[in-house]
Design a protein around this nucleic acid. Structure first.
Length: 264
DNA sequence: ATGGTAGGCGACCTA
């Protein structure tokens, strides 16, 4: 089973690139974040025509939005809300084989890494706390689960272009890294990307739009993640970060797709 | 220390 995750930064603007991803990589399931559209305007038909007949979409006007698109049947589709907001950041579904799939978009958190003066950062920290508490309750030792998405945190030193320079930059601050670590421990999540790529090796999934030349400066961060619970660890067969997608024409997302293969 | 770009939408927000 092949699962892809991508912060697409508007599914309507980048439908063509989504079709390219599907054609070239043939994932069974695609999880999207930042779809930025209400469900009525989601381009379901061109996906259904290509075999992605099962969709669990959860969007809103202008902001956020997550989607699970699948060639395999989806059951028990649901959404979760955190911080008493209904902002379309977490969708889940049961895949064949009883695998529970979570598609997540954690708040970016604004610019100032101080929850006392930046409400967006306070929201991000509380979102992590709320979701961690829920996962700790929700887990069961033998339940196979996959969690993917834009978690907006780069936890390891090799997940950013400069650990030292990003210590006070939202996405790599110690408090966020600690809270993401607590979330990872909440259900014994295995970091599938680092299962295959050594922790000391640079690995990025996002490059800013603001760089003159993203590839030359290569100031990236690993903000997108794929986690699996221990029952699925033996089934991990590979991951793929589509770095080239950062240059896809005509207009790339600032995030690239990440793919995991599971022998299930 | 600062500003750089992108998408959505509606006269500015979030990333």
């Amino acid at each position: 089973m092949r699962i892809a995750t991508w912060n697409i930064n508007s599914v309507r603007m980048r439908l063509g690139l989504l079709l390219k991803l599907i054609e070239e990589e043939a994932p069974d399931v695609v999880c999207l974040q930042e779809t930025k559209t209400v469900d009525a305007d989601f381009p379901l038909a061109p996906l259904a025509e290509r075999g992605y007949a099962h969709a669990h979409i959860h969007g809103m006007k202008s902001y956020n939005g997550v989607a699970i698109l699948s060639r395999l049947p989806l059951e028990a589709t649901a959404v979760q809300h955190w911080c008493d907001r209904e902002d379309c950041r977490h969708a889940l579904a049961m895949l064949p084989g009883g695998i529970e799939l979570h598609c997540v978009y954690i708040p970016a958190g604004g610019d100032i890494p101080d929850p006392a003066v930046n409400d967006k950062f306070a929201h991000k920290l509380r979102f992590l706390d709320d979701m961690t508490a829920w996962l700790a309750e929700h887990r069961s030792p033998d339940r196979p689960m996959v969690l993917v998405g834009d978690l907006n945190i780069a936890p390891l030193e090799a997940d950013v272009w400069s650990h030292k320079e990003l210590l006070s930059v939202v996405s790599h601050t110690p408090i966020e890294v600690e809270k993401l670590g607590a979330m990872q421990r909440s259900a014994g999540w295995v970091d599938a990307m680092r299962h295959f790529v050594p922790e000391t090796e640079k690995l990025y999934t996002w490059w800013s739009y603001r760089a003159r030349d993203w590839a030359a400066s290569d100031r990236g961060r690993r903000l997108d993640h794929i986690w699996v619970t221990p029952p699925l660890k033996p089934a991990l067969t590979g991951i793929k970060v589509l770095r080239d997608a950062r240059g896809w024409e005509p207009k790339p997302s600032d995030h690239v797709p990440v793919i995991v293969d599971l022998a299930v």
